[in-house]
Computed example of a mutant assay.
Amino acid sequence: MALARGLVSNIAFEQAIGNFAFSLYNKVPKDGNEVLSPYSITTALLMLMLGTDGTTKNQMMSSMYLHTLPTNVHFNYKRLELKLTRKAKKGASLLVANRLYGSNAFSSYKDKVRRYYGSAMKLMDFTGQREKSRKSINDWIAGKTNNKIKNVIKKKMIDASTALVLVNAIYFKGSWDAKFDQTKTKRETFRVSQHVRKQVYMMNAIYNVKSGRNTALNCKILQLHYSGKRLSMIFILPNDANGLKKLESKLSLNTFKNILGGLRTQKTVIKVPKFKIETGYDLIPILKARGMTNIFNRRLANFKNMANVNRSLYVSTAVHKAFIEVNEEGTEAPRSTVVLPKRGGKKDFFQFTANHPFIFAIRDNLTGTIIFMGRVVNP
């Protein structure tokens, strides 16, 4: 009976962080190409939540859709992370690494973070060695992300008032289950906007994959698996070349599940551009828009479960940086194996031609967790 309750509660937890993933994407300012890792942001916030109490904690729980869960959300997270990272699949791997930088004043909090999030604490002198501290943190992040995420902590972010720096790094590398033939990649026209067109390298293939249409969202959908088929990338393409914003306004966890549920395996002519995106965000306005305000307020923030210190603790900086590259081999894939598409008449095949702005997501197929999410406007 206890096992059944635990299973149900973890499903509820996975759904909650799924809702939070889409709410984060909806709040991100969108000017062009975008990529973020909702899972990475969620992990950092949950680590922070361990030190909160009172209204501050309740705000965080509510903003992240966790307030109705009857069980320990940190235990739920640990169970989810084990599902995601315990058995690395050949050709697709996911690394999640957490670390705290601070003083011995945080010893009890440090132990709780280690228990649930596997985080070590490194002692830092933020007062006397600000630049050395900043470089050390940035070097650790770069090392955990294959040197793709650099310079997250900018100059002047760390000063004499800094008490604790909490870092979450996430790195994903995947090879397509069925790779694109590099010799078939060619320059084709991509419609950036109503008046702007450009030539981009478009990958081409014909595969038996999951694809389909959704009339309610007026879009086409393509799902491509990574090697091992545990993780996949979903492309959501509005039928209207100028319909990206309208599509985004309708996107939620429920609509996302609906469009995936309507896919079927069929021969599909695939045209998808190669792209590389790196973006950085100030999370403070994004999280405030979700109702998470107390943690940033010196007077109202309640971090009494974090440390016994003679000063008020609050969050002064919250940044997120993400990188993604998609090519014929997959996402950040180094090998060169090529699988040729099957032959056959194209006229009866489903056509998926991403020659105008679209949305993408990298998803764990077992739990439904959104690892990365973004949009391509200008490949």
Rank of each mutant, 00 (worst) to 15 (best):
I141A: 03
V272S: 11
N98C: 07
A163M: 14
Y171K: 00
F296S: 06
H195Q: 13
S23I: 01
V96S: 11
T337W: 13
M64G: 07
A333P: 08
P238W: 06
H356T: 03
L313Y: 09
T215F: 10
A301E: 09
S227V: 05
A4V: 12
K246R: 12
M306S: 10
G174D: 08
L237T: 08
T265F: 04
Y65R: 09
G118S: 08
E248P: 07
L164G: 06
R79D: 12
M61F: 11
R79N: 14
T85R: 06
A241I: 11
T337Q: 13
K186P: 01
M61E: 15
D31Y: 09
I270G: 00
Q194T: 12
N10Q: 14
E329Q: 14
V200G: 06
A289R: 05
L313P: 04
S93W: 04
D348H: 12
V326N: 06
F349T: 15
L95E: 12
P38D: 09
Q194I: 02
S336E: 15
L69P: 00
T183R: 11
K83F: 04
I141M: 08
K132H: 03
Y226R: 08
N19I: 04
A241T: 14
R375Q: 14
L247I: 03
F126I: 09
N254Q: 14
V315Y: 01
G51M: 01
K257F: 09
R290P: 00
I149M: 09
V113W: 02
T55Q: 14
I153R: 03
I221P: 00
A361V: 00
A97I: 08
N294Q: 13
E14R: 10
V192E: 13
R191Y: 10
Q182K: 15
D348C: 04
L50K: 11
L247K: 05
K144F: 02
N151I: 00
G102L: 03
V73A: 04
K155V: 07
S9T: 10
K122V: 13
S193Q: 05
N151A: 03
S249H: 07
M373C: 05
A21R: 04
E325D: 13
G374K: 09
S316H: 03
K87M: 11
K186L: 10
G243P: 07
N104S: 10
Y101T: 03
T127W: 08
A216S: 14
N19A: 07
Y25M: 07
V319S: 09
R197D: 11
R191I: 09
